[in-house]
Design a binder for these strands. Structure first.
Lengths: 223, 223
DNA sequence: TGTCGCAATAAGTATATACATATTATCGCC
DNA sequence: GGCGATAATATGTATATACTTATTGCGACA
């Protein structure tokens, strides 16, 4: 078994996992043994197995060794685009219109995540070739982006470049357009819309945002 | 500047990026210089910068050096759940009902991704505490899962454990329930539903699946 | 002036070695 | 037999060194 390079080692390990040479729930040989068997350094095996562990194919613990999970949880990484870039990547011309920007009391549904003080509430419409593309409905912690105006620059774009995205959650769901939403997005009432909620925090809440896309929008990603 | 460990090196690099010490679009010192400055080995710097590059904070090219992207594209990793586990994690009892399993011609919309030969077409309903949870509409390459019956075991579950997820795409979108879909999922016609399309390929197509979730479903993930 | 090829460069990788650290396993003691 | 201290162990990390490779940029040549 001639292995050269950590990627080859990773591929061989993955082959064994899939071939059930290393059965689910079982423990695999330790790094030193694999290094000897494959004729590579232990650091190379380490890199290969660490990579597989990050992808969810293996579970590793100090002293406990490395095992194949009974139910592998596959992990997908996908890029969170800046909306403007997203539009440009489709070959369309981005547009932006600020709808409102004021201090407001946080709705009850968000109060447990954002606290109950007043927060800055920004709504804006993103356009592609002049037609509505995405509605941005954002709550901002007052101390973030203090004094920044979002007339021409979207909060989306400002935040991506200026804030640590150290922690947070992301959620996809579908909502039906009510009358005002339909009017804003220029679609039929009742249309099915993709919504993405994103919460960002870093020792306290930073921002909560819901992006509601025009009908037909697909958010795609490589696996 | 006392740096010990690759994580400290990564943190210091990230601090400089955020503090604009290393401005967007600019090139940062090369690994050897940083290693000397921080008093660590180049391999340690490499690990740190590689990590930041994987997260989207830096762009690295051989010979070209390392630079701070003008518009950082943040990357989120999230786990793709097995439906049954997803339901169990909510404290509900999973159920499964196979609706159809037959060879069929691929619809025109999928033909460019799957080819135009006949493929195995499996539809099934996942239940949570007896109520419809998710409709699975799957096209399978005939050579995959040959002879496997999906009466009691869902294709979703079988594939996660048995197939290389080496390549593929993932897309989220929203669709409105038509009459038959509404009946299957037990919801009102016109309801907004979250749909997830997933295509898996490994030197040729393996499977294409659309999961359509019951109204109100949110797919959540850490960032 | 343009372009082709070569040299310089910075990241990518491999290796042996050494030590750190989290866990597990074991042994002795009560 | 239970429990706690201790030893054993597999992975995690750091280091110096050496070589590889993609890419850039420069210089020679047409």
């Amino acid at each position: 078994m001639a292995i050269t390079g950590w990627q080859a080692a990773r591929d061989e390990a993955l082959r064994r996992i899939r071939a059930r040479d290393w059965p689910p729930g079982g423990r695999i040989p330790d790094e030193a043994d694999l290094a000897a068997e494959w004729g590579v350094a232990r650091a190379t095996v380490n890199r290969a197995l660490r990579d597989l562990a990050e992808a969810g194919y293996l579970e590793r613990r100090r002293k406990g060794g490395t095992r194949v999970p009974l139910t592998p949880v596959r992990k997908a990484t996908f890029a969170i685009p800046i909306i403007r870039q997203d539009i440009e990547a489709r070959g369309q011309t981005p547009g932006y219109r600020l709808l409102s920007d004021r201090s407001d009391t946080v709705p009850a549904a968000l109060r447990d995540r954002l606290g109950d003080g007043p927060m800055r509430h920004v709504t804006a419409l993103h356009l592609a070739d002049g037609t509505p593309y995405c509605l941005e409905d954002r709550w901002l912690s007052p101390r973030v982006a203090e004094g920044i105006r979002f007339d021409t620059l979207s909060a989306n774009e400002w935040l991506v470049g200026n804030v640590t995205f150290s922690e947070g959650t992301l959620a996809f769901h579908a909502i039906a357009a009510d009358a005002p939403l339909a009017q804003t997005l220029g679609c039929d009432p009742g249309a099915a819309l993709l919504a993405v909620d994103r919460e960002t925090r870093d020792q306290g809440p930073i921002t909560w945002v819901r992006l509601i896309y025009a009908p037909g929008y697909r958010m795609e990603t490589g696996l």
